[in-house]
Amino acid sequence: MTFEPERLGQSRSDLAEALRGQRKRAGKTQTWLARRCNMSQTKVSNIEGGKLTPSIVDVELILEALGADSPIAAEILSLARSANTEWQDHWSSRRRGLDKKQNELARLEAVSTEFRFFLLSMITGLLATPEYVRASIADVPGDQSKTIAKKLERQQVLYDDSKSFTFVLTEQAVRWPLLPPMAMAMQLDRLASVSRLPNVRLGVIPLSGHIPERPLNTFTLYDRRLATVETGTGALILRDHRDVTAYRTDFESYEQYALFGEDCLALLAEWSMIFTRPRQ
């Protein structure tokens, strides 16, 4: 299936219409379908009304219950995959205000308990110093003070011991000189400090040795239900369990190359000294 970002929103209504039509052609009621799929009638109604986006598993159960032919089932499952994918482009986010995006992330963090961050090229806001946060959005026009304040406010979630965090950063992400040397040294000290929190695992992948992997994007996993993938022009939000599982597998693969604990702290200290070393 061709990926068309502008079609993602429409695919949700298309999916609702397709499932509703398939049920009616089968001559079944919502109550009958709900009972066969072990769902509430309200859930079936919300799916068919486009108020609730069903998971791929939900759609598979519905199609099996209705005895959908293979070609029709394949088409509807394709719609379900698109409906479980959301595209957020940077330009729309900036027009709405980046502080609105911070509110969305805070709500997502509030309802999640297990977080995995793979950071390929930059340090995420949860780990950033105020100076790093400010520099990371320096190219956005206008007053960004509200966005900076909200980014820093979100860092409080790290101190909620009911949640667990695993951060895997490449050496490039840690050492990319977004700030002047002394400010970068302070940023590395911030990483070391956060790594000592009891509910945080922070590891770095040094650019040495043999790493037979080819990471392409920064991504974040929220529990087992959602993955966000950063690109140069926006972010994909993936809810299909196959996509989330694939990124979990990738994360576990990258994680095995990372150094944690005292080994991580030693590397951070070494790199911090490079930033503070007097230039000849």
Rank of each mutant, 00 (worst) to 15 (best):
S164G: 06
L178S: 11
L238S: 04
M182C: 07
R239L: 13
V229C: 08
N217R: 07
Y222L: 10
F219Q: 06
I237T: 14
I237F: 12
M184K: 03
S195D: 10
V229N: 04
E171G: 01
A185N: 02
V194P: 00
P141L: 13
R201S: 11
M182R: 07
P212A: 12
K150Q: 14
T245S: 14
E230R: 06
A149M: 06
F165P: 02
V174A: 11
A183V: 00
W176L: 03
T166V: 09
R190D: 10
A173W: 04
D240S: 08
S145K: 06
T166R: 13
V244Y: 09
P177T: 11
A235R: 09
Q187Y: 03
F165A: 05
P198H: 12
V200L: 04
R201L: 10
A183P: 00
V174C: 09
V168N: 08
L178N: 10
P181E: 08
G142E: 14
A246V: 02
K163V: 03
V200T: 09
Q156R: 11
P198K: 13
D161N: 11
L169C: 14
Y159I: 00
I148N: 05
L158R: 01
R201G: 02
E171Q: 13
V157S: 05
T170Y: 07
L191E: 01
L197S: 11
D161T: 10
L191A: 02
L152R: 03
V140N: 14
G203I: 04
L236H: 11
I148A: 01
V157T: 06
K151H: 08
D161R: 12
E213Y: 13
I205T: 03
L207M: 14
E230W: 01
H210A: 12
L158M: 01
R175E: 04
L207S: 15
L158H: 02
D160Y: 09
D160Q: 04
T170D: 11
A192K: 09
Y247S: 02
K146T: 12
S208Q: 11
R239F: 01
L236P: 00
T245G: 09
G234L: 03
L207P: 05
D143W: 14
A183F: 02
R225T: 15
T228K: 08
